[in-house]
Design a protein around this nucleic acid. Structure first.
Lengths: 248, 248
DNA sequence: CGGATCGTTGAGTTGTATCAAGACGGGTGG
DNA sequence: CCACCCGTCTTGATACAACTCAACGATCCG
């Protein structure tokens, strides 16, 4: 189930290269990061709240989500993570995890020891900056989700979430022409928006009825991108994408 | 209204020292940061969404908040900031601001050029780590606010928010015995929780009626700390405070 | 003293939750 | 290969949390 391999850092290298061109030394340091690849099943916790991890993981394939469970037992999803993301990069400087992260689909992930990352950051300030920036973009997404959960009604919030997912998937080549594989259940979407699954179902029907999307058999197609953006009050500014990777 | 002064970085130095003891070099580098102090009036934007700032600001005194305005014109407050915070530290690596920050009370802030911070970080990896950590704690607070807005009812969310404010104020010496100055209007609280001001008013009355708090003339007193924590489903883990600064 | 801001209250409305039940579909074991 | 099961999606009926609108009281400040 688990194997040691060098040079499984390509999703990370690609991401950093979209921010600045890597030097020889930077590239080879990244390529020689020790990384332990694992294949995980669906709906399986990767790390849990309260733990003190000694490594981060890089998603190579699949969907994961960060979440918390309230005292009343309801789940709130905090973010979805896709290929190229390092969902628990924060654990590099926050010793205790304040949320859990679980797979949604089966996933391939690569574990990288904190020690190796600290070593890398100590030597290359630009890589530190780039990794720091990654965590700052995550924070920007959290901010937008506060707005989504606090000030948008369910229909608008759903439209916004779908816009975000399409743009992010497009940025890593997992969506084309506003169409993508979206392996989320209505219950996952409900827990991301903080609404019930019943209401999620009705909201999706409304979006379909308005001719904005189709969503079946885990495939999302945006039929009317401008309409969906308007319905969701969506402005991709907060995703801080580099020019070029943005959606039309 | 604005003056140049050296050595106005003491709130920052105190904060970093709570994480690790500073070396001679680190301390003197921090003390010699160029900082431009300004006194600002209440309800005044410090930075605005869309701007590309070339400096960060450190709060020396007063309350500020980060916020966004939705397409429908409603405000969502994303976080409150108090003395010692650097609310737009993220602008060091994200060129465009994705939200605005405004004063609530009159404030004293110190502006620090990005250039000086980059220079400092390039020379001292531990300071980089500490500043990075600050932004990670902010992100952890955003995560908790997603839960607050998504999965808690207004009464519970209000209790949670008040718990957070008391603990954070206590950590910087601005609250004692679960009592503090809280210069927020009900409208501010409403915009933080994503509810209407009318409902905020009623929720506060419920908390008073339950004997959990008093709140008048801008002074919050928690009468029943355990009760408020329970009502708000509050666990301070996500604030990542150092042991010692935590509330009882 | 008048105006502005903030807090409070009541009445009616809307968005969303809950409960309950059935439909659909894919996988598994007999 | 069929029967069954389980997770997911869907629908209807009812209940509740929170919103809006409107008005009024309290304070503070110029």
């Amino acid at each position: 189930m688990t194997s040691f391999l060098a040079s499984h850092t390509s999703p990370l290298i690609r991401k950093l290269e979209s921010i600045f061109p890597l030097s020889e030394g930077e590239r080879s340091a990244l390529e020689s990061l020790p990384i332990q690849v694992a294949n995980l099943g669906p709906d399986q916790d990767i790390v849990r709240i309260g733990e003190r991890p000694s490594r981060c993981f890089l998603i190579q394939d699949g969907f994961t989500c960060s979440y918390k469970i309230t005292g009343e037992g309801t789940r709130q999803i905090l973010n979805f993570h896709i290929a190229g993301d390092i969902p628990d990069l924060q654990s590099l400087h926050l010793s205790v995890l304040d949320h859990s992260i679980s797979t949604i689909t089966p996933c391939t992930v690569g574990f990288i020891p904190h020690e190796a990352l600290h070593d890398l950051c100590g030597r290359y300030y630009r890589i530190t900056s780039a990794l720091w920036r990654e965590t700052l973009v995550d924070a920007a997404v959290f901010r937008e989700w506060i707005v989504n959960n606090g000030r948008r009604e369910a229909l608008s919030a759903m439209a916004h979430l779908l816009c975000e997912l399409v743009v992010r998937l497009q940025a890593v080549g997992l969506a084309q022409d506003h169409r993508c594989d979206l392996p989320l259940t209505q219950s996952d979407l409900a827990d991301a928006l903080g609404v019930s699954t019943v209401h999620t179902n009705r909201v999706l029907q409304d979006l379909r009825g308005a001719g904005l999307i189709t969503l079946k058999e885990r495939t999302l197609t945006v039929l009317d991108w401008e309409g969906l953006k308007t319905a969701g009050d969506f402005d991709p500014l907060y995703l801080h994408l580099e020019p070029g990777s943005e959606a039309a």
